[in-house]
């Protein structure tokens, strides 16, 4: 048996309301690319009972692990971790890939400890070389890039959202549907933590890290009420609103909106920074965006040093003009 073909890959597909999350589809695209470059077969684990059909429709996978159990309707790290370990063992997976989000991070650490390895987190490039996995990833929120290599397998990897193409974008349906494998029923009585409730308070349509377009605001907005201007532009563009640390610390926006080294690191296709000077820790969190537009009164603002396009001017004039022009076209 050649070691090349041994390295089967298990991908965890995280879903919301029965739909596989974009970041998970990107993780799956990476797994497919690795498989083509000499790794083993690819299986996906989808634990949300509602997402089983969506996952099974992803032809080209060898296997899909699922569970119909209602326990998996809500996230529970002990149950999810155990199920993924069962799937990894059954599939003889040597590489486990998850999306780098709140659930991916939580599970990756537990899985790596159980498998006796480390996590290569938030990776933006992965290759399979000499029987092991090499990755590149931003560190210090993108102030530097680092290349790492797993000394041995197994490897656990979390994938940075928006770093890889969505699997649905280039997916060639295989001839056969994947084999569906039902995981054993979880032993609910063994779970130590209890999930009491979940509330949809302040729920966003799209997570900031997965968004294609982000309209972000800083202190130049002058007050929380003025973020309405950014919300309107984001609506026209189909994007979401982000914010600087100063704005979140002042309580104008929730902390979950913060972009930067102590917030979220994002790489959307388009990042529009409005009234945001660009503190170094903010720039670190967004400077890998594909295209950056800065709208700022100050022609010397640091944000203009990383921007693709800049407009010097009052955001209270420029942003509504942009919204209106886009909305009427």
């Amino acid at each position: 048996m050649s070691p090349m073909n041994d390295a089967n890959i298990l991908v965890y597909l995280e879903s919301v309301e029965g739909q596989v999350r974009k970041a998970s589809r990107e993780a799956l695209a990476l797994a497919a690319a690795l498989s083509r470059s000499g790794c083993g077969k690819v299986a996906a684990a989808v634990l949300d009972p509602l997402a089983r059909e969506a996952a099974a429709a992803l032809r080209g996978l060898d296997q899909v692990y699922f569970s119909p159990h209602r326990l998996f309707q809500h996230y529970h790290n002990e149950a999810f971790e155990k199920a993924l370990l069962q799937a990894a063992e059954d599939f003889r997976a040597r590489i486990v890939i998850l999306a780098s989000n709140e659930i991916g991070r939580d599970l990756a650490g537990g899985l790596a400890a159980a498998l006796g390895t480390a996590v290569a987190a938030d990776v933006t490039q992965v290759s399979f070389e000499g029987g092991t996995v090499a990755v590149r990833r931003p560190i210090y929120a993108g102030k530097a890039m680092a290349a790492f290599r797993f000394r041995r397998l197994p490897a656990v990897i979390t994938v940075r959202p928006n770093a890889f193409a969505d699997v649905l974008a280039g997916w060639t349906p295989g001839a056969a549907a994947p084999a569906l494998v039902e995981l054993p029923e979880p032993a609910e009585a063994q779970l130590r933590a209890r999930v009491l409730e979940t509330t949809a308070a302040g729920r966003k349509k799209t997570d900031l890290t997965e968004a294609d377009i982000i309209v972000s605001g800083g202190r130049g907005l002058k007050g929380p009420e003025n973020f309405q201007i950014l919300e309107e532009l984001a609506d026209v563009l189909g994007g979401v609103v982000g914010a600087s640390r100063a704005v979140c610390d002042a309580g104008w926006r929730p902390h979950s909106d913060q972009v930067g080294q102590t917030g979220k690191t994002v790489s959307p296709k388009l990042y529009i920074a409005c009234g945001l000077s660009g503190a170094i820790q903010h720039l670190a969190g967004m400077s890998s965006s594909k295209c950056i537009v800065a709208i700022n009164k100050d022609p010397n603002a640091p944000i203009l040093q990383v921007a693709t396009y800049g407009i010097v001017g009052d955001l209270f004039e420029v942003v509504p003009a942009l919204t209106q022009k886009l909305g009427t076209e």
Binding site: A134, P138, M145, A146, R151, L304, Q305, Y309, I311
Partner: peptide
Amino acid sequence: AALELVEIEPPPARQPVKIL
């Protein structure tokens, strides 16, 4: 260690801004 550091590099430079 399970992970070996190969190298650290500065992030890729961005093109100069176009002020419109």
